[in-house]
Amino acid sequence: MNSLLTSIVAGLSAGGAYAILGVCAVFTYRLVAIVNFTGAAIGAAGTFVMVALFEAGYPLPLDVAAGILAGAGVAMLIGLVMTTWFAGASATTKAAVTAALLVGITALGLRLTGGQHPHNFPELISGSALRLAGVEVTWASVLTLALAVICMLATEALLNRTRVGLQLRALSQRPMAAELIGIRVKLLAVGVWTLMGAISSFALMIIAPLRAPDFLSLSLLVVPGLAAALIGAFTSFRAALVGGILIGVIEGLASGLDAFSQYRGTIPFIVILAVLLWSQRGARWDEAR
């Protein structure tokens, strides 16, 4: 029992990161109508900039700041591409473009970072924060969970209580009308991408020491992130937050069970399939009748 609790608690760090990626995916979809497949790859780019500077001997706070700026810069470039050439494209086309960009960023990242060559990922925060039923909860777990909740609350407050939020909602619901009344649509859209890139980079910096130390593994964290967003139907920040944490906890639980540990990587795919099947239950029921 204690080993299972340890595994579940160990999944909290990953769950917090998945929740952040899920909230970012919902944020991007609600404001610029894009199912974004590049979120984790952008975060991986920022993380490896941080790692490269750390391995070169620079102070960790400077490394983290540079990595966050790098992730924000990559996201900004992608935002410029999407708003310049694909602003009027369908949602399917936009999603396909981000999927293609995911492949390109991952291939370039693997090339620049040495493929499967291991890297020394520093722990941004270490040590035990508290003990839960005899199991240590690390500061990394607390930080990722706190950051996930802060991201969720901040995005809700931004959209519902600020002038910028009002403009962002106008951008998401009536982009052409928003542009006609003088809202700087392109600037806001690129700003959404930039903010998403900065947050994703910091989230992956925290979780990176717990994952396989290569660019591909971090980029593929987009899958649990999108699974969390799908639980929230790409509209609810709170459901995405809860979904991401639950996926991490289930992964942790699976890793503690010998019969299921080798299948833990399939859990986000199972969640996506289950949510899609559940969403179609009404149509199937009508057909059955």
Rank of each mutant, 00 (worst) to 15 (best):
L102H: 10
L69I: 13
T93Y: 03
A66M: 11
A72H: 01
I68C: 05
P61F: 01
Y58R: 15
A75W: 01
A56R: 14
A72M: 13
S90K: 13
A95K: 06
A75N: 05
L77I: 15
A99L: 15
L77G: 01
L60I: 12
G57S: 08
G57C: 10
A70K: 04
A70H: 00
A65P: 01
V64C: 07
A75E: 00
G57L: 13
A100I: 13
I68H: 01
Y58D: 01
G71H: 03
T92L: 14
V97G: 02
V81S: 04
A65W: 03
L62W: 01
A96H: 08
E55G: 09
W85I: 14
I78E: 03
G79W: 00
A70C: 09
V81F: 06
E55R: 14
A56V: 12
V74W: 00
L62M: 10
F86W: 09
I68T: 02
K94H: 05
G73I: 11
L80N: 06
M82R: 09
T98Q: 03
A91C: 03
T83G: 03
P61E: 04
L101S: 07
D63R: 10
G71L: 09
M82V: 08
G57Y: 04
G67L: 07
G88F: 07
A70N: 00
A66I: 08
F86K: 12
T83F: 09
K94P: 03
S90Y: 05
G79S: 07
T84S: 14
I68K: 00
W85V: 12
L102M: 15
T83N: 06
T92C: 07
I68L: 10
M82I: 10
T98C: 09
G73P: 02
G57E: 07
A70M: 07
D63C: 15
L80I: 14
G71S: 06
T92G: 08
K94I: 09
G73A: 15
P59R: 10
A75Q: 03
L102A: 11
G71K: 12
